[in-house]
Design a protein around this nucleic acid. Sequence first.
RNA 1: GGUGAGGUGGAUGAGUGGCUGAAAUCAGUAGUUUGCUAAACUGCCGUACGGGGAAACCUGUACCGCGGGUUCGAAUCCCGCCCUCACCGCCA
Length: 423
Amino acid sequence: MLQVGLIREHKAEVAERLALKGFTDKTLLDTVISDDDARRRLQSDNDALLARRNQASKEIGTLMSNGQKAEAKDLKAEVAILKNTVEANERRLAELEISIREGLQRIPNLPSPLVPPGIGADDNVEVRRGGAMPALPEGALPHWDLIRRHDLIDFETGVKLTGSGFPLYKGRGARLQRALIQYFLDANTAAGYTEYMPPYLVNEASAHSTGQLPDKEGQMYYMPADALYLIPTAEVPVTNIYRDEIVKESDLPIRMTAHSPCFRREAGSFGKEVRGLNRVHQFDKVEIVEIVHPDKSYEVLDRMVAHVEGLVAALGLPYRILRLCGGDMSFASALTYDFEVWSAAQGRWLEVSSVSNFEAFQTNRMKLRYRDAEGRIRLAHSLNGSALALPRIVAAILENYQMAEGIGLPAVLHSYMGSDRLV
RNA sequence: GGUGAGGUGGAUGAGUGGCUGAAAUCAGUAGUUUGCUAAACUGCCGUACGGGGAAACCUGUACCGCGGGUUCGAAUCCCGCCCUCACCGCCA
């Protein structure tokens, strides 16, 4: 959520930068500003009335204790009249506050000046690529065929247990999940991230502050009996650890990592895009989250990108890093880098990580602040990234490491898998 | 699930209608003193939204779990809700 002051003071620039994200509703900006103006005026007026009421109430107390009942009665009459106006003002004030907040929640984050123009995936800018393309054996198969051949995941039984998109990992397939999770967590903690294991259900307030609510309600599984949401990513509980907190400047940066299953309804997805592990309703992901000083957030973003790059490179997968264009970025992000690995047998790039700087967009909504050296309270910046999401990594490992007979493994996973081969 | 107790500032915890935005202690912070460490002493030390000011700062209002009510006036009284803790039951 943007701050009203920013919109008010730099309206033209804000509108121009939002256009890069495809947001052109200038009327909304004007409405928010005019509502805020009205709110300020009304609060000033109303505060004056309340001040008068408080003063009169004090006088009444004094008069009563002196036995001056008649004078007290006059003052009571005055306060009674004030009361109606105050009540009306407060109702109007509450309406304005809701209207401002709802307006602000519909305005996306400002893209950073580094964001390239564009409307979709084709306009993303490739920053660099790395890793060697594999030389696949004759008759190389896509991962869904390899999975079936080696009995790594039983999709059919997953359907029986739950429904489509809920894979049942089995044998070496299950072991590979555990190995990847452990490897990623080990690498992240070695890089200085503190490991957390969060709840997988969150309440409405948590879903709100990271921006899943109100818009993306349909993407989350909801448990109406308890008003709880299954998390779509560990970002939600982990970032919310510091909701409504004022931390010390010296506590920054706060660097956290967590593994969690991620639950996504993915309503409306279908076809080839969702085949095999390309898109599922439940998957595992290790996330990194940082809460940092605003002056440092872009430096930190670069460091997070370098860290994730290290993970992908260590897995020996061909990858490329994209800087997302305005039209392809998420609502909350100011700058996002996507990581894609090459799925050799499918012949396509698969997104395995998205690393974003949200600047103060999330922290404003969740009131996550720090106290600076002068004692002033300022919004911190938040960032997060996948390090990494498992299913497409698994797809790429299977396809890229397939051999004439069996499937190999990246060296970093050998100790976790108890073997230098998957099968 | 049952019974009981309770939700006050970073923490502990006082406060049953106006003198309370809130005692005291601890923590934090700035300083003084002492040869160092430590201790002692002194000052400061909640948040939000307004108004004024270049700023330091001054000032108004709101907030004592949340929402309503009573009252000239509510942390304090009344109603509803939420949550926490303890014990019992059940259970991994």
